[in-house]
Amino acid sequence: MQTVILAAGQGTRLRPLSESIPKPMLPVAGRPIAAHVADAAVAGGADELIFVTGYMGEVVEEHFGERYRDVPVSYATQEQQLGTAHAVAAAREHIEEEFAVLNGDNLYDPESIVELFADGPGIGVFEVENPSNYGVLSVDDGRVTDIVEKPTDPPTNLANAGVYLFPAEARAHLDVPMSERGEHELTDVLARVIENHDVTPVELHRWMDVGRPWELLEANELLLGEQRREIGGDVADDATVEGAVVIEEGAKIESGVTIEGPAYVGAGSTIGPNAYVRGATLLEGDVHVGQAVEVKNSVIMRGTNVPHLSYVGDSVLGRDVNFGAGTNVANLRHDDGEVKLTVKGERISTGRRKFGVVAGHGAKTGINTSLSPGVTLSCGATTEPGESVTRDR
């Protein structure tokens, strides 16, 4: 089974985190999102992975190389992001048979992908509460009969999850007209397949589109909660490690540290002494969490330093961030309302009562800085010692 993984987008809703890391390569449970997608494809029986890259495609290629889990890997470049059908068309020269398509920035459960790959042509669907916000499938006698984009009167609550198994002949149908949204869309390819084939809807048990910073947090909460305990690093005798915690070889847990899982501590990271890590926290690798620091339910990316006497809660810190001593993140509004965050210039609700900050790569805070809920620090941003930051910077 040839499997096309779409990994070309810029991920503008994830800025500043996606400014120097392609969206599919952002970390979830110790690995890039796209690696979890590739794992699901391999579990389903993929015998070739074809990554469609664009924005910072070299990062994807460097990670996956020529083989991934003993499966050969090929690459195609989408020079302009003009829609999903346009992306798959960029890989057309590699496609020779029945083929699957998965989004490189979505999380799927492998069991459902196995089911989809075994019974094609097919499409992954997910039951949603508000189907009017999605492409919605019409189904009759176990077969897909139609797909309608964001209908006012949805025929079902089955949303298109963006994972497909196409017959080989669909390769010839990829040059579809541009839609009203200004994109060449795979749903138009699907419509042509429906005319000539029985298309099976396969309901996914998991589908998560990691499109905004708090969804990266949610993705880590989900997958860290499923991991098994594995202690491989150097753990001090008087440190306490409880629950589903992964500590990679090369990580060091110093005296007096408490880690309450689920948590993932990447290679080269050091925690402590006397630090407290809890609540679905990812330390990607080469992270320093220092003396008397508390980190709760956060994603802290590679090379970041939270040296001592600081608190980070429900936050996402990019790579090579440095928090000065005594930096404290507030993660709860006084009115107990949902925290808002800026996405593409608009303040929108995260849907979360507790959410801290997003710090772009290379951001730095002065000592005793306080950061209000929903603040975004842009890449390379700085704060003054003792400053209270209430607005994006």
Rank of each mutant, 00 (worst) to 15 (best):
Val343Asn: 03
Ala330Pro: 00
Lys354Tyr: 14
Thr350Lys: 11
Ile348Lys: 12
Leu332Tyr: 08
Arg353Leu: 13
Lys344Gln: 14
Gly337Ser: 14
Asp335Thr: 10
Ala330Tyr: 05
Leu332His: 12
Val329Thr: 13
Ile348Gln: 14
Gly326Ser: 01
His334Asp: 13
Gly326Phe: 03
His334Pro: 14
Arg352Asn: 13
Ser349Thr: 14
Gly345Gln: 08
Thr327Phe: 04
Ser349Gln: 09
Arg347Asn: 10
Lys340Pro: 07
Arg352Met: 15
Val358Leu: 03
Arg333Glu: 15
Lys344Glu: 15
Phe355Pro: 04
Ile348Glu: 15
Leu332Ser: 12
Lys344Leu: 13
His334Gly: 02
Asp335His: 05
Gly356Gln: 04
Val357Gln: 04
Gly356Ser: 09
Thr342His: 06
Val329Asp: 10
Ala359Glu: 02
Asp336Gln: 11
Gly337Cys: 03
Gly351Leu: 05
Ala359Trp: 00
Ser349His: 06
Phe355Val: 13
Thr342Trp: 00
Lys340Ser: 14
Arg347Thr: 06
Val329Phe: 12
Thr342Glu: 13
Arg352Val: 09
Asp335Ile: 05
Thr350His: 10
Val358Ala: 05
Lys354Ser: 13
Thr350Gln: 09
Val358Gln: 08
Thr342Leu: 05
Ala325Val: 03
Val339Gly: 03
Gly356Cys: 06
Gly345Ile: 08
Gly326Thr: 04
Asn328Lys: 05
Val357Asp: 00
Gly337His: 01
His334Asn: 14
Val343Tyr: 07
Thr342Cys: 11
Gly337Gln: 11
Ala325Gln: 01
Leu332Phe: 09
Gly345Asn: 09
Asp335Arg: 05
His334Thr: 13
Leu341Phe: 05
Thr327Pro: 08
Asp336Tyr: 10
His334Tyr: 06
Asp336Gly: 06
Ala359Val: 10
Arg347Phe: 06
Glu346His: 09
Thr342Gln: 11
Leu341Ser: 07
Gly337Trp: 00
Gly337Pro: 02
Phe355Asp: 12
Glu346Leu: 06
Lys354Cys: 01
Arg333Asn: 15
Lys344Asp: 15
Gly351Gln: 09
Gly326Met: 05
Val339Gln: 02
Ile348Ala: 09
Gly356Pro: 04
Glu346Ala: 10
Asp335Ala: 05
Lys354Asp: 14
Lys344Cys: 12
Asn328Thr: 13
Gly345Met: 05
Val357Ser: 06
Ala325Lys: 01
Arg352His: 12
Asn331Leu: 06
Lys340Phe: 02
Gly337Arg: 12
Val357Ile: 15
Thr342Ile: 01
Asn328Tyr: 00
Glu338His: 10
Ala325Met: 03
Ala359Ser: 11
Thr350Val: 10
Val357Tyr: 00
Ala325Asn: 04
Val329Glu: 11
Gly345Ala: 09
Lys340Leu: 04
Arg333Tyr: 05
Gly356Val: 07
Val343Cys: 06
Lys344Ser: 14
Val343His: 03
Gly345Phe: 02
Ala330Gln: 08
Asn328Glu: 07
Arg347Asp: 14
Lys340Asp: 15
Val339Ser: 07
Arg352Ser: 11
Asn331Gln: 09
Ala325Tyr: 01
Ala330Val: 11
Ile348Tyr: 03
Ser349Leu: 08
Glu338Gly: 09
Glu346Arg: 14
Val339Glu: 02
Phe355Thr: 12
Arg333Phe: 02
Thr342Lys: 12
Arg353Phe: 10
Arg347Val: 00
Thr342Phe: 03
Arg347Tyr: 07
Glu346Trp: 01
Phe355Gly: 08
Leu332Met: 13
Val329Pro: 08
Asp335Ser: 07
Ala359Asn: 02
Asn331Ile: 08
Glu346Val: 14
His334Lys: 05
